[in-house]
Design a binder for these strands. Structure first.
Lengths: 334, 334
DNA sequence: TTGTAGGCGTTATCAG
DNA sequence: CTGATAACGCCTACAA
């Protein structure tokens, strides 16, 4: 902790103390065995003593490469993206890449600003989690000329690559199951109206209309939460007293609905079937447990990182869009 | 989208097309009114057309400044840190600073590696969320010579600055309330044993011992979750059939306990009082609602960012440790 | 095995 | 108002 010097140590500092040139120190850092054993020891000792920290700025300058992948998450408060980020990081770190995380609160403009920021740090690749972008975002990504993966969905015209699942089909499937179980008045509960909420709504609508029912939408612009779920149920019951099913854009809302329903003595699934999305842990401790559409988030993260890294290694993937599927986590709420 | 050039546009490219030097373009970017009106228009047009993206690498090289603040979060799946990050970003962005987020899964070593990474990108300041660090972490921070805030807790010997609250006192207070309400066999439920879990445990222990009771610890190394809460309750009831209170390190565990208890017909709070930490939204939709210790996370984030930015502006704060207090969000579970 | 020269993109400084 | 120059720290390429 004897910080005699005010400035961060550089290769030059280390070299000077030993009486060699910075070039030798640079070589040591990349491959310790490329320098003489005696030199090696001296350098190692000095690096240890000074607490030298690598400086990526020069590499960013000369090669426009930062060994970093930028990750854009819609929100930090949504547990869904934690496993996704872990999948990315597992693959990235095993290939010597760092990850830089930014979040944009489901806002196009905020996404644009965060992407500009990440690009200004010369990230080598980008992993996005929305498929709707501003024109300037698209332009920046175009000029940056780096590999980009849009994760979670399967856009018809991806910017570059995409890894995700068919949310619409998943919704169609499970809503059809609900109908087949005898439910007739199923409402769709959505919040925040991001693109996945809309896709699920489409799948829902197709399923109910296919059986001759009218879709019922209970929507809010608010950020989703457990308490919003509870509020939405109240709103739905006021308008549709014969409601017997709830298909929810996520588990937060689904759990909020279950808890509110049970407090009113509505039995689940007998009087009201509830289905969510994302299969979060909380659904498993509910009674009955929550039926939810599960997605391979960790694997989507892994695959996204693999695609970026392959592209950076000069091996662009032939296939541009990967569908990693979904499963239905069956619970007692349906 | 006519990407004729493969390389990212630079100031030089833009200058060449107009027939001026890059220096003028550089000036324009920092202050558009520092160049002649006619020049200004030409530059603006060209920047718009090329989709120029700022490159921070040279600034990082020459001034060792990146206009970025690094944030280290223990976990992305913990909702607690979302508001905290928002508080930081609100202040940072209003001062022209970006944020770079990394997470370390409550691991010292992972924290060290993420800090090394952030420092290699020349972040101008660091906001940490743990008070236990490896020696190498401390050394790196020392040599980096940048302002550092340890947020959430109130360490006795902060690295530099700290903003947080007294978790131990909060725990003492609320456990004392539990005891005063007539509970005698209160257990502490902890997971993952991070430093805040330990502080709360100390406060709990002091409170129960002050009234002549023996502390009961129900702990797990596992990552906390709703289902872990349910499991821990089962374990606790096996060992202590007369359990009448549960003080939990967080709301995930508390809610898991409440749901599991209610499924067994245990009435809350009559037979079992439950108290959590963090006052998450889910607690408000439980029935009864969850009593929980609430913390000013957004404000902690704001204050942390303010301290960093003041220090960077050359106005170091006299006071090094800020206690932002806590409140008890009263619910029916106590 | 180690050293020297040059360059990456931007900005501070000084000159015109 | 605009231009020329040098510097930041590291790595590639070449030289000894």
């Amino acid at each position: 902790m004897s910080a005699t010097q005010k400035t961060r140590p550089t290769l030059q500092h280390i070299a000077d103390r030993i009486g060699i040139t910075k070039m030798t120190v640079s070589r040591y850092l990349r491959d310790p065995h490329s320098v003489a054993a005696s030199t090696r020891e001296k350098i190692a000792k000095e690096i240890e003593a000074t607490g030298y920290i690598q400086n990526r700025a020069p590499a960013m300058l000369s090669k426009a490469s930062s060994k970093a992948i930028g990750i854009l998450l819609p929100s930090l408060s949504n547990q869904v993206f934690a496993r996704f980020a872990q999948g990315i990081e597992e693959v990235a770190s095993s290939h010597g890449y760092q990850t830089l995380i930014a979040h944009f609160g489901y806002s196009d403009l905020e996404e644009e600003s965060k992407i500009a920021s990440l690009l200004s740090y010369q990230v080598d690749g980008l992993i996005l989690t929305e498929t709707s972008h501003t024109n300037r975002t698209l332009q920046m990504i175009g000029t940056a000329n780096i590999p980009v993966v849009e994760a979670m969905e399967l856009p018809h015209t991806p910017i570059d690559m995409a890894v995700g699942l068919n949310h619409q089909a998943a919704a169609y499937d499970v809503v059809t199951q609900m109908l087949n179980s005898g439910k007739k008045q199923i409402a769709y509960f959505g919040a925040r109206l991001d693109s996945r909420t809309k896709l699920r709504m489409q799948g829902y609508t197709q399923a109910v209309e296919a059986q001759g029912h009218k879709p019922i939408y209970i929507l809010t612009e608010a950020h989703s939460s457990f308490s919003i779920g509870a509020n939405l149920l109240e709103q739905a019951l006021n308008q549709h007293s014969d409601l017997d099913g709830a298909f929810c854009t996520n588990d937060d809302i689904a759990v909020g609905i279950m808890l509110a329903a049970q407090q009113q003595g509505i039995s689940i699934p007998h009087q009201l079937a509830v289905v969510g999305n994302n299969a979060l842990d909380i659904g498993t401790v509910m009674s009955p447990s929550l039926t939810s559409i599960d997605s391979p988030r960790f694997e989507i993260g892994q695959k996204s990182a693999e695609l970026i890294i392959s592209a950076l290694a000069g091996v662009p993937s032939e296939q541009k869009v990967y569908d990693l599927g979904y499963s239905i986590s069956a619970g007692g709420s349906l």
